[in-house]
C-alpha cells in the first residue's frame, strides 16, 4: 500500500530530516513510527500527503509514485488518506457536525450523502450526542475524536496520525487508541507517529524507529525501546 524507496528529505535550511529511508507498509497494517522529537516522524507523514516535496527517492501509494504527481492530482491523493494531527485542526466556528461535514463538502459530496455519513461516523467515534456542540464546548479527547471522524468520514484506505495522543492524558489516549484499532480492523491501513512509550508497549504492533532521520529498527510486534 505504501512504499518508501531511498527517500531523503533535506529542508531549505540544509537540515536532513530523513536519510535514505526504505520502508514498506502493507494494506491493513497498523504501524507505529517512533523516535524522539526531531527524528523525522512528522516529515515522513508530511511527505505522504505531499504537504512537502521529497528531495530524493520515490514514495509509492497504491502502486503510484506520488513524488511526480501533478499539483492538480494532489487533492485526489489526499482524499484517499485521512490525516489526524496533534492539534486536531478543528474549525472553531463550526459545530462538530459541520466540521465533519466540511470534509465531505469540500470534495463535492452531495447533501444527502453528508446527512447519511456524518451521523454514522460520529456514532463510530461515540459523539453522536454532541453533533451540535462547538469544539470549545467539548473536551480535548472528544475534539480528537471529531478530528478522527473527519479524517475517516470519507472512508479512506489509509489513515495517518501525527502524535494524536500528544495533548491527551493516558486514559483519554487509551480511548483514542481503541478507536484507531477499530478503524484498522475494518481494513484501514493506519500509520501513527508517536513518542508515547506506554501506548506502543501495550499495543504490540509493528514498530518502526527513526533516529536523526535514519531508520534504525523495524520490528513486527515491537515495543518502544529495546
Amino acid at each position: 500500500m505504501i512504499e518508501f524507496r531511498n527517500v531523503t528529505k533535506i529542508y531549505a535550511d540544509r537540515t536532513a530530516a530523513l536519510k535514505d529511508i526504505n520502508l514498506t507498509i502493507k494494506k491493513g497494517e497498523f504501524v507505529f513510527i517512533v523516535g524522539p522529537s526531531g527524528s523525522g516522524k512528522s516529515t515522513l507523514i508530511k511527505l505522504l500527503i505531499r504537504e512537502i516535496p521529497v528531495t530524493n527517492g520515490a514514495i509509492y501509494v497504491a502502486g503510484r509514485n506520488i513524488c511526480n504527481l501533478k499539483t492538480s492530482r494532489v487533492p485526489q491523493l489526499r482524499r484517499n488518506i485521512g490525516s489526524v494531527f496533534q492539534d486536531f485542526k478543528l474549525l472553531p466556528n463550526k459545530t462538530v457536525f459541520e466540521n465533519v461535514a466540511f470534509a465531505l463538502e469540500v470534495i463535492g459530496r452531495p447533501a444527502y450523502v453528508i446527512k447519511l455519513q456524518v451521523p454514522q461516523v460520529l456514532k463510530l467515534v461515540g459523539l453522536e450526542h454532541k453533533m451540535s456542540s462547538y469544539p470549545h464546548q467539548i473536551s480535548a479527547g472528544e475534539q480528537q475524536r471529531v478530528s478522527i471522524a473527519r479524517a475517516f468520514v470519507n472512508r479512506p484506505p489509509i489513515l495517518l496520525a501525527d502524535e494524536p495522543t500528544g495533548n491527551l492524558d493516558p486514559v483519554t489516549s487509551e480511548g483514542i487508541m481503541k478507536l484507531l484499532s477499530r478503524i484498522n480492523l475494518i481494513g484501514t491501513t493506519v500509520a501513527m507517529a508517536t513518542h508515547d512509550k506506554n501506548i506502543v508497549n501495550s499495543m504490540r504492533r509493528r514498530v518502526v524507529e527513526l533516529e536523526e532521520g535514519e531508520l534504525i529498527r523495524d520490528q513486527k510486534r515491537g515495543v518502544y525501546g529495546i
Binding site: 500527503i49 504537504e51 499539483t71 492538480s72 487533492p75 485526489q76 491523493l77 489526499r78 482524499r79 490525516s83 485542526k89 474549525l91 466540511f102 470534509a103 469540500v106 470534495i107 463535492g108 473527519r150 479524517a151 470519507n154
Partner: peptide, 11 residues
Amino acid sequence: VMKLVGATNWF
C-alpha cells in the same frame, strides 16, 4: 483544513 482533506485549489 480544506487543503488537507483534499479540496481542489479552485474549490
